[in-house]
Amino acid sequence: MSDMTPAPHIAVSRMEGEAHGVVEKPLTAFDKIYNLNWLRKLVMLIVLAVIWEVYARWLNNALLFPTFAETVEALVEGAASGILVIRAWASIQMLLAGYAIGIMLAGVLTFLAIGTRIGSDFLETMTSIFNPLPAIALLPLAMTWFGLGSGSLIFVLVHSVLWTVALNTHSGFRAVSNTLRMVGQNCSLSGPRLVCMILIPAALPSILTGLKIGWAFAWRTLIAAELVFGVSSGRGGLGWFIYERKNLLDIPDVFAGLLTVIIIGLAIENLVFRKIEEKTVRRWGMQQ
C-alpha cells in the first residue's frame, strides 16, 4: 500500500536579486529628537518655569508666591553662602544613620523569617501592623521617649525604612523560583550559603524596590519631622531651614529650600538607584 502513496514534490524557490522592499529605514531627524526622553522632559520643565514666572509676575506678591527668577536666585545664594549645603548635609547625615539602622534591622528580621516559621509569622504580622502607619505619626511619641534630639528623628526614620524593606525583601525571597533553589541545593548549597549565593541575587529586584521605597519614605519623613523640630544641638536640617525662613517671611528662601529637597530626592532616586539597577538587574534582564 505504501508503494501507492505518491512522493511529495518539493519546489525550492530561488532567493536572488533585490526583489524585497527596504528592510530597514532610518528615522527622520524629528523622530529621533522626539524619541529623546530627557529632551521632552526638559522642554516640559522649561514651559512650567515660564508659566510660573509669568503667573508670579502677574500676581506681584513675593510674600505669597515669588517668581521663578527670585527662587533660583535664593537657591544660588543659599548654595554659595553654604547655608543650604550645610542644612542639606545635616539632613542627609541623619537620614543615612536612620536608613542604615533600618536596613540592618530589616536584614535580621528577614533572615529570621526565611529560616523559621515563627520568624515569618512575626514579620508578616509586624509589617501588616506598622506598614499602614505613617512614620511621622510616631513623632510625638518618639519626642516623649527620646526628647528633642537625633534620637527621635532616627526612631521615626528607622520605622519608615524597616517595614518596607523587610516586606519587599521577604516577598522577593518567597518569589524565588523553586528551580533556582533546587539548582543551589544541587551544588550542595544550604543555609546561609544558599541565602547569600542564590536567594539574595535572585530577589535583588524586590530588594532594590524595597530600598528605593524605603529611601523615599525616609526622606519625606525626615523633612516632615524637621518641620516640627530640627534644632538638635544647634544644627537643623532642610526641613528646619524651610520652617525658619517662613517665620522670617523670607518666602523665596522657603521655595529654594523646597527645591533643594526635590533636587536631592530626584538625584538619589535617579542617579544612585538608577545606576545600581543598570549595573545589576537591568543588565541581567531581571527587570525591563
Binding site: 539548582v183 544541587n186 550542595s188 541575587p201 541581567w284 531581571m286
Partner: peptide, 20 residues
C-alpha cells in the same frame, strides 16, 4: 539522602540558569 553534585539535574524550566 540529600541533593548533591554527584547527581546533577537539568530541568525543563529555562530559569534554571542564574540570571545574574
Amino acid at each position: 539522602a540529600a541533593p548533591g553534585p554527584d547527581r546533577m539535574m537539568v530541568f525543563q524550566e529555562f530559569d534554571q540558569l542564574l540570571p545574574w
